[in-house]
Design a protein around this nucleic acid. Sequence first.
DNA 1: GTGAAAGCGCTAACAA
DNA 2: TTGTTAGCGCTTTCAC
Lengths: 357, 357
Amino acid sequence: MADDEHEGPERGTDSVPADEARPGPRRGAPTIYDVAQVAGVAPSTVSRTFSRPGRVNSETADRIRKVAAELGYRTNPMARALSTTHTNLIALVVPDITNPVYFEIINGVQDEAAEAGYIVVLVDSRESDRQERDALERALPIVDGIVLGTSRMSDAAIRMIAKQKPMVVINRAVREIPSVVPDNPRGVRRALEHLGELGHTTVTYLAGPEASWADGMRWRGLREASLELSVHVRRIGPLAPTVAGGIAGAKAWLQAPTTGVIAYNDLVAIGFMRAVQARGVRVPEDVSVVGYDNIFAADLVTPSLTTVATPRRALGSAAVRNLVAQMKGAHPRGGPPVVVPVKLMERSSTAAATEQP
Amino acid sequence: MADDEHEGPERGTDSVPADEARPGPRRGAPTIYDVAQVAGVAPSTVSRTFSRPGRVNSETADRIRKVAAELGYRTNPMARALSTTHTNLIALVVPDITNPVYFEIINGVQDEAAEAGYIVVLVDSRESDRQERDALERALPIVDGIVLGTSRMSDAAIRMIAKQKPMVVINRAVREIPSVVPDNPRGVRRALEHLGELGHTTVTYLAGPEASWADGMRWRGLREASLELSVHVRRIGPLAPTVAGGIAGAKAWLQAPTTGVIAYNDLVAIGFMRAVQARGVRVPEDVSVVGYDNIFAADLVTPSLTTVATPRRALGSAAVRNLVAQMKGAHPRGGPPVVVPVKLMERSSTAAATEQP
DNA sequence: GTGAAAGCGCTAACAA
DNA sequence: TTGTTAGCGCTTTCAC
């Protein structure tokens, strides 16, 4: 281990009491210049070794890598970013981390991003247009691309931002912007089919927030399916996409009950069930309810909730794949959204229709 | 709108078919030099205007800001980072985003970080020591500090990293490293007290993962409280901190039932309830169960779960406050952990003890 | 295949 | 208070 003697004194200096070295950037972290000097090559060669392997003789490269390892060299991301103008960061925007729907999306995004060598920056928009724009504005200059997971911003605002950085939108279609969405029409259709097969002739749709693109899609899909399947659908809402929203929906529903109910999402469905159960209405005996999303809690409540499972992890990873392609130079395809399939999870909150409650 | 004529031709060029302008860094984004020139000052003055307001004449500053606004100047974070060596990014490490326990922590961290002008980078360690180290290793060079939300790494590994960047640990105490933890001893004590008051004389503790620092704390707290309160405690485990873990725990518990059960966390409690209910055991009539954490689903299950609420949002924000102080130069205080209070939520899964089931 | 040198955009002494 | 001048560490032509 008789190293290059140049190292001697410096190492020695380095080993003063660690207490002295307060946390922070390592003073004198080795740079390409240090490596270059020890390896007896030019800095540019060291740079190439790490940024363009292959553009350098494999023997010199080996030597350089060895020296780098010995010196503990790590390429400085900021310096690299300054000259290349990309950071290997992507922003993931979600309206509310607290909403169980996003966990899996986050996971999908994380996984795929990690695989592609990107780090993700979380932007929580707190369900607010303003917050979302501000937070995004702050993150924008440091990221290479953006995944918009269910945005609350206007199409115009979204397009504005998409002009500045590659972007892909989840759970929403915005013209000219690549997007990936679950197969909502199919989802609500399956839900309605299921209820129809169980003999329900009229079902109530507990609608989501007015601004929700997905809600529009679902309601439309429901109406279309309604015709084909000759099941009547009614609509209550708009409702907040939460347990509280479901409770509010229940109040309205009690005025004019139906034997079947399809909710905007699982949270609403759960709120609805609790509220009607509290009034003595039995689920599924008196009313069958179908949720949407298949969140974790759907399988925990009593009765367990029949629901349309959206492939949220797939949504997240598909989005990142698309984004990475864009960042690698592919032109953003303004085509139709990528749609990923959904699946009906039949559980215990639905049963054959009996008489009107 | 007769702008500076210099802009004319370039703007024109800029408005060619948008398809041509592939997404990416705005070509020729204005720099401090552009602003300086137009404002008739030196670049350094522009720099100061934004990085050290106050160190520049307020009139010139106004003028500069005006020009900057007109030109659409935005300071380049990468360039700034390169010369200052800090990025205004902090890393938040959580073992599993999917675990409901972390949502609120994430929120607390996000809020406090935003307030302090930091952006958070999410590092999901997938409950794996390896993954955590790798991911952290990647994020390390670009962040100014780290919040470790329930780490799976060894104390030594943690200390290693803390040498490089300011850090604060949540849910765990590591010597020499600032940390913030919930009042676990108090939490389990309250749980046991509650059960004791209800007449339970023997309770089973459904233990968490072996590697869990919190589990150790809770078990220890339980044993101590057991003496004082003269309630017998038994232990089953280690168990995975999941619904599945709870189901496994139920199997063991059925061999030797007790009228009271305290679970490592809510997920375990929920799994336990489901499993014993499936065997015909009634909750709370036959067995009272207390969870830990008060996750969202705790109030959704049947019966709703009595549980110890940990102030997770407070945990997150306290951690960031401490971290920011460190990054601002305060020496990391190796003192005792900051402990935040917990609270017992009495719901429907606990009731007076009857005979042994 | 490798080296020399010019930036990337900003901050930070040091002068004036 | 403001200007001048070096860098920060890396990438990237352009020669050799």
